[in-house]
Design a protein around this nucleic acid. Sequence first.
DNA 1: CTGAAAGCGCTTACAG
DNA 2: CTGAAAGCGCTTACAG
Lengths: 326, 326
Amino acid sequence: MTSTDVARDSGVSRTTVSYVLNDTPGVTISDQTRARVRASAERLGYTPSAAARTLRTGRSDLVLYVLPDWPLGPAVDSLLDHLAGELAERGLSLLVHHQRGGRPLTDLLRVVTPRAVVGFTAFATADRDALRRAGVQVLGTLLDDPGAAGLFTASQRSIGRLQARHLREHGHRVIGYAAATDPRVAHFVELRLEGVRAECAEAGLAAPQVISVDPSLESAVAAVRGWRSADPAATAVAAYNDDVAIAVLAAVRAEGLQAPRDLAVIGVDDGPAAPFTVPPLTTVSQALEVQARHLAGVVVEGLRGGDEEGLPTGDDLIEVVARDSV
Amino acid sequence: MTSTDVARDSGVSRTTVSYVLNDTPGVTISDQTRARVRASAERLGYTPSAAARTLRTGRSDLVLYVLPDWPLGPAVDSLLDHLAGELAERGLSLLVHHQRGGRPLTDLLRVVTPRAVVGFTAFATADRDALRRAGVQVLGTLLDDPGAAGLFTASQRSIGRLQARHLREHGHRVIGYAAATDPRVAHFVELRLEGVRAECAEAGLAAPQVISVDPSLESAVAAVRGWRSADPAATAVAAYNDDVAIAVLAAVRAEGLQAPRDLAVIGVDDGPAAPFTVPPLTTVSQALEVQARHLAGVVVEGLRGGDEEGLPTGDDLIEVVARDSV
DNA sequence: CTGAAAGCGCTTACAG
DNA sequence: CTGAAAGCGCTTACAG
């Protein structure tokens, strides 16, 4: 099923088929011919070969979104959905690549020729350069690595900062930090923790005591004991995310204590379980719908050759959802 | 950066470059020449054009995984990771497409030329046919739609069955069902519910009273009142998933009742919050690691042209994780 | 053992 | 207003 078939079927040349099907501007073709060509294409179920178009034009309508190795949660799905929609309106298709192991990104070029690659996390320098060399546009990253400008999302540091500030505003002077143990997420833990540290330091509080939580009940119980037996004892804990916070909350109950009276807890994500914990979990919400819209704009702007600098960093894209655990 | 550049740089023809870089069997090329070609390719950062290869050979090393519109949870990520790994070992790359709105799948063919498309849910017949016509292999689905054999996963019906059976085995004779309201998930609700109904019918129990839950606390409270005021009153509830179950559990507490004494609750997913609810949630776990391995095998087998029939349906891939809510 | 040549399916100057 | 022809970068019979 090629354009030759359509041409033969509708009694015109392949040139005309191409002009009609691509709505090429600046050519004048009778409405009658156009209709005939479209009808043939439709009837024959013709789809132009992506490989041939890409080879010929040297560019494709494909945008590749590169996702990292670690678990991301449902928020990213809706982000992708939204981005795909925005791109579709501009004739672009979005495909997602789940990065795995250490395999270089350039392996992908053996299989697709994207117009642009958008990274959720930072690219390895070698990958970035190789992609650029192959004529692929490389579009920013989400992480606030030094030197890699955050593309669209709230910075991880500001999430930590916001947690600490909320705790501080509720009178807590000694704050613990519940880190996650999953190594794939270590970088994020570090960035959020930095935010907590910075806020504590600026407010003249002691540095947060960091304890990792599995999350299993045993691990969380050990952590709760750790914070409470420290000197000075922590009265509040900022957790890496809701999952960790939920485990800590369970440990508080298991120890016969009460949140927030004996230990306040704040999470990150505002996941589905957060409103229903005991007590309901105070947490940081990341307004991902808004971020998605923003990301879409940035990507589209970037594709148009615009400047990716000077974009909002998005600190206003996070907020605390106050419930009863603080 | 084309194979011509590599040929010139290493002083051979493009033919030889292709033979060396593809390790084409049956050609004899001196080790010295091979080394020279590889060195050039490496130094020049040469990656063959995916478009040109695909166009010339008529096949690509791309497998497309089509994901549905609705939220899937982290389990699918690990499934994808595993599949990508298995495929990579066979020289195949996996890319994911998040299906959106009603846009036809064939739009994708304007952008990529996959060897095969693997569907998480069933394909629309039109899509399936169009893909096949374009020479793309279409590989099964997960849903147990009539006529669309389940590709790899446990059937949704058996999940519902298993919930009801567990409840029944714990002495419950009147069972309620907590459905989800998200329309994107309606089909799954229906299938799981069918399983519950079937199990109840076979055991001679009344049909389950179905109430939808938001999930918000108000909605869940209304549901709990509904089940308890029914005649006969339900003593146990099978929930569509953990999220719904968690809301129901919160409603039970809000009403001053206790689970499982006043109302037993069983979820589906065994998500991260399940061990930490009050009381800890009994739920159905879907051995997704195992399913992933299985899926990878099926896909690879399918690509090899093998038969996708006669595969395990995977009813042994689910099990209840008994905690304290039943 | 290596190279010249054809051709995959498309788009797009260019000629008529 | 429409068509013949070139050429994108590759692979692969085929000739030497």
